[in-house]
Simulated assay, not measured.
Amino acid sequence: MRQQYKDMFPAWVDFIDEDFDLVLSNDADSLLSCLFLNKMFGWKINYFYDFNALYQIKPSDRDRIYVDIDVVNGKGWGNHVVLINKTDKINKQMANLNTIFKVHQANYCKKYSASTFLTILSYYNYPLFLLPREAQLITLSIDAGFKGFYDKYFQQFNYFYIHNVLDMDYLFDLQKQYSKDDFYNVIGTYNLHEKIYLQNGKLATKIKLDELAKLFNFNKDVINDLFSATFTQIQEFEDVCIPLNANPNIDLSNAFSFALTNKNFAKLSLYKEGVQHER
């Protein structure tokens, strides 16, 4: 990532010698991001969040990093649009390009549409170009980050973020060699569209974990330990979807997470009554 943009990120992202707990969300973007942060800095996944509840493996007083989860308060990596209006209050502890560039409902089409995983790889200057071509294609396929390249209008934003901000021009050029269908085939091959969920207190998924671990050099023991651990619910939420046209102003005072899922639709998790709020 180019330094001028790295300088806009919250300071904590450089506290790599501190011991944080990671909070995993329910998709491939969060999982690969967490596995990368574990590989690089030794931070362990101790929590799982599925928008309806927060679960933990064991009690901990370490600071949490919410990964691919745009929380209203707390530290995290994200990639969602979280502003309805440009002047809305932001969580300054979120490392999110769409927050940094003040993307909001009115200029939603200018958003960074690639993955949280790609943001993290770029920020920490990871040499993705040294990994197999298939790994590079997977990185572009997560969250369908490639889609903007194949649209005449959106290609300018695909170029701006990948080339000018992330400083990964080889990924922009890589898109020229493949079709949209090629990338959708990658998504299907590795089940990148599948969710992560809890089944009898343990994580389960149809995402092709073994293949991804091999391509990205992730420790399989870490993955096996994660999917054999038992999670216990510690917080419950109400998962709410709101059309923005009917609700131009949303009260986030009782919200745990919030994001625009498209220009005219918002998704948020609200604390349920009687549940202690996240610190």
Rank of each mutant, 00 (worst) to 15 (best):
3 Q>F: 12
3 Q>L: 10
5 Y>I: 14
5 Y>F: 14
6 K>H: 05
7 D>N: 14
15 F>N: 15
15 F>T: 06
22 L>I: 07
23 V>G: 02
25 S>A: 03
27 D>K: 04
30 S>M: 04
31 L>C: 08
34 C>D: 06
38 N>A: 04
39 K>R: 10
40 M>A: 13
40 M>T: 10
42 G>W: 11
44 K>A: 11
45 I>T: 14
47 Y>P: 03
50 D>T: 04
54 L>Y: 05
56 Q>S: 07
56 Q>N: 05
59 P>E: 14
60 S>F: 02
62 R>D: 09
62 R>Y: 10
68 D>M: 01
71 V>K: 01
72 V>D: 00
73 N>V: 08
73 N>I: 02
75 K>L: 13
78 G>L: 01
78 G>S: 11
80 H>Y: 11
82 V>T: 15
87 T>N: 13
94 M>A: 01
98 N>H: 09
99 T>F: 01
99 T>P: 02
101 F>H: 12
110 K>S: 12
112 Y>C: 13
119 T>D: 03
122 S>R: 11
124 Y>S: 02
127 P>Q: 09
135 A>C: 09
137 L>W: 06
142 I>Q: 07
143 D>P: 02
148 G>F: 10
148 G>L: 05
152 K>F: 13
165 V>C: 05
168 M>Y: 14
169 D>L: 13
173 D>V: 08
176 K>M: 07
179 S>F: 07
188 G>T: 13
189 T>A: 14
189 T>G: 00
190 Y>G: 04
193 H>V: 06
194 E>Y: 14
196 I>C: 06
197 Y>N: 13
200 N>E: 15
201 G>I: 07
201 G>C: 06
205 T>A: 08
207 I>W: 05
210 D>H: 09
213 A>E: 03
216 F>W: 07
216 F>P: 01
217 N>F: 10
224 N>I: 11
224 N>Y: 10
225 D>Q: 12
225 D>E: 15
226 L>A: 06
230 T>R: 11
232 T>C: 02
234 I>A: 01
235 Q>L: 14
235 Q>M: 08
240 V>Q: 10
243 P>R: 06
243 P>D: 12
243 P>F: 06
244 L>Q: 03
245 N>P: 07
250 I>L: 15
250 I>D: 11
250 I>M: 14
253 S>D: 14
255 A>G: 12
255 A>P: 10
260 L>R: 00
263 K>Q: 12
275 V>G: 03
276 Q>C: 09
278 E>P: 01
279 R>E: 09
